[in-house]
């Protein structure tokens, strides 16, 4: 039995008819075409599907769509403003923190939640925040560097 519910995704309200069992990742990818949210393990072990729900990182592969009705969902597509990359996105590009790019959306959004909460994290705090996000390409070195660099840019008021 489908329910029509309102979802605010990247600042825009969407009315979508969803089944009670439908997962947030399915609504984002299949209904809204927001394929930047990636499916990888399907059981909440890898962080590839991370989105921000009211600013908090949530795993879209474990979250029922109905759980986030009337809440504000931010996906990777909503991060750049008017064609300008968010400092985290820019730092990931600049520091070579992106290889295959599949974990990147989840890494960047997890990083954003960290920096919104803690603008001046230590390297260890960055690693702790990213501990649930698996990357198979980079060894995390340049990802951690990029998050720290973005933190500095954001502290100085960049974008």
């Amino acid at each position: 039995m489908k329910t029509v519910a309102t979802f605010t995704v990247n600042g825009l309200p969407h009315e979508i008819a969803v089944e009670p069992h439908q997962l947030l990742i399915e609504v984002l990818r299949e209904h809204l075409g927001l394929t930047g949210t990636k499916h990888s393990c399907g059981v909440g072990n890898c962080g590839a599907c991370t989105v921000l729900v009211d600013g908090t990182p949530e795993l879209a592969c474990l979250t029922l769509a109905m759980e986030v009705r009337d809440k504000s969902v931010l996906t990777i597509e909503g991060l750049a403003k008017e064609g300008l990359l968010h400092p985290l996105q820019q730092a990931f590009v600049d520091y070579g923190a992106i290889q295959c790019g599949y974990c990147t959306p989840g890494m960047i959004l997890t990083g954003k939640a960290l920096l919104d909460d803690n603008p001046d994290p230590t390297e260890h705090e960055v690693r702790e925040a990213l501990a649930g996000n698996i990357c198979r390409c980079t060894g995390y070195v340049k990802i951690v560097e990029a998050v720290l660099a973005a933190a500095e840019v954001m502290r100085k008021g960049g974008n």
């Binding site: 990818r29 394929t35 930047g36 597509e77 590009v93 070579g96 990147t104 959306p105 960047i108």
Partner: peptide
């Protein structure tokens, strides 16, 4: 030189299409 990768922005913004993203 340490150039940025041409595909970096597409991957940082979610624009990059992987096989499973094709509809």
């Amino acid at each position: 030189t340490r150039i940025r990768q041409p595909d970096g922005p597409a991957k940082a913004t979610g624009e990059a299409k992987f096989a499973g993203d094709i509809s």
